[in-house]
Design a protein around this nucleic acid. Sequence first.
DNA 1: CCTTGTGAAAACTTTCACAGCT
DNA 2: AGCTGTGAAAGTTTTCACAAGG
Lengths: 207, 207
Amino acid sequence: MKKNIPSDTIKRLIYYLRYLEELKEKGKDMISSNEINISLNIPSNQFRKDISYFGKFGKRGVGYNVTNLIEEIKKIIGIDKKIKVILIGVGRLGSALIKYRGFLTLNMEIIGAFDNDPKKIGKEINGIKIMNLNELKNFVKKENVKVCILTVPANNAQQVALIAVESGIKGILNFAPVKLKLPKNIFINNVDMASELGYLIFKLKNL
Amino acid sequence: MKKNIPSDTIKRLIYYLRYLEELKEKGKDMISSNEINISLNIPSNQFRKDISYFGKFGKRGVGYNVTNLIEEIKKIIGIDKKIKVILIGVGRLGSALIKYRGFLTLNMEIIGAFDNDPKKIGKEINGIKIMNLNELKNFVKKENVKVCILTVPANNAQQVALIAVESGIKGILNFAPVKLKLPKNIFINNVDMASELGYLIFKLKNL
DNA sequence: CCTTGTGAAAACTTTCACAGCT
DNA sequence: AGCTGTGAAAGTTTTCACAAGG
């Protein structure tokens, strides 16, 4: 499986997964790519192509086994086991993400939170203790965490990201509206709210 | 300007804009595409191509005038005037977004918030009054709002989105982890936190 | 007859490299 | 000499359409 996989393929896998989980709860055990199209508005071709990057999980004339496909997609993404994640920057957005349920249902668990504000350190959110940034390294090493959600202010982001990387973090989901400069073996995924809203505004203007 | 503009081009424009504003504050008045490359880590070619979809704003041998380019990019995106935005779903993420400063500095202003929880209705966040969903239509008409940020729970999203569209909303920035089904003249931009985190996890596994 | 899996075509985006203006 | 603007090439992603299997 070492062909180049489009990033949108992976993001669609998450949508498939959520839909399949829903079907499973309803007791449905088979699904066809055409039903994906009807329910998720993603072309059946694209669903089959997305899946086919990773193997042959369907039966011709029949479709896909729901439970089996769920397991396969989880394995593909790497969330068949629980994935430990830390969060740095317990502001409003950070707090909202700590409490967000959408991660846990997909086996992604925020197990620690960090900040540099003495007023916040020591408190708990959702059972997650907020720790001092200087405890980051020990924690990351001890828990062997690889993934970090970064929700610090823009002017702190670069500096804090460097600390995270030095601590052993390999991937950063960055919500700060800056381009981080990090070694290229570190994977960065930027989520920029204003950029997304700006894109929407542009599209409306050019309907 | 009716060629097809890559969506990433528009998202990069926001990054250029923020950087240019920074330079302007520092008193810099000219910039070359090569400096963009050094500071933002975006190839100078790509910067020039991005800009060139919309016109010729530079001077050969010299570069781009910072103030002028800021104005042009704002015009391109459609944020040269203040853009009114409403937000539906004043949960934790919704509240965080209402307080987020990154929108206002780009001329995108959340002018109203809506929820269906009686405990929230009537309260204020950041000077924004939280209104009942049944006031949405009047408000949207009166204020002539076209853009909505949707931060309601997944199981409500489709229904609430329909109400927004009936009220006159034309574009939705959707944070609910569902694929909305709306008339195709409505533009939807999905931001899916779990999907982004999942993508990151996948990339790390396949380093 | 139904639905998958997939090469091949089409569409889209980025990168290249250089002509042309200052 | 320096930097932009841009066609053309390369690379990537989606769509098409159909052969093959149940």
